[in-house]
Amino acid sequence: MKECEIYSNIKPPCGCKVVARLDGRGFHRLTRELDFKRPYDPFFADCMVETSINLMKEFSPIFIYTFSDEINILFEELPFNGRIEKLDSVLASFTGTSFILCLLKKFKRDNIRKPISFDSRIIPLGDHLLVEYFKARQDEAWRNCLNSYAYWTLRETMDKKTATEKLKGLKSGDIHELLFERGVNLAKVPTWHRRGIGVYKRIVTIKGYDPRYKKEVKSERKRIVVDKKLPIFNEDFFKTIEGIK
Rank of each mutant, 00 (worst) to 15 (best):
R113V: 14
L154W: 06
A141T: 06
R83V: 08
E140M: 08
K86S: 14
C145P: 03
F75H: 07
F99G: 08
E77Q: 07
D119F: 00
R143D: 12
K135E: 14
P79D: 02
N81E: 15
R109K: 15
T157W: 06
D139M: 13
L78V: 06
I84H: 06
F67E: 10
L103N: 09
S68G: 10
H128N: 14
L91Q: 05
L101M: 14
F94M: 08
P79T: 06
E70M: 09
L129N: 15
E76D: 15
P79N: 05
R113L: 15
I73Q: 11
S89E: 15
L91V: 09
T97D: 09
Y65H: 07
P124C: 06
T66H: 05
N144G: 11
R113H: 11
C145Q: 05
R109N: 12
S93R: 06
W152L: 00
F67N: 11
R121T: 08
E156C: 01
Y133C: 03
G82H: 06
F99W: 08
W142T: 08
R155C: 01
T66W: 03
P124H: 10
F118A: 09
S68M: 10
I122Y: 01
K135Q: 15
E85I: 04
F75P: 02
I64G: 01
L87N: 02
G82L: 08
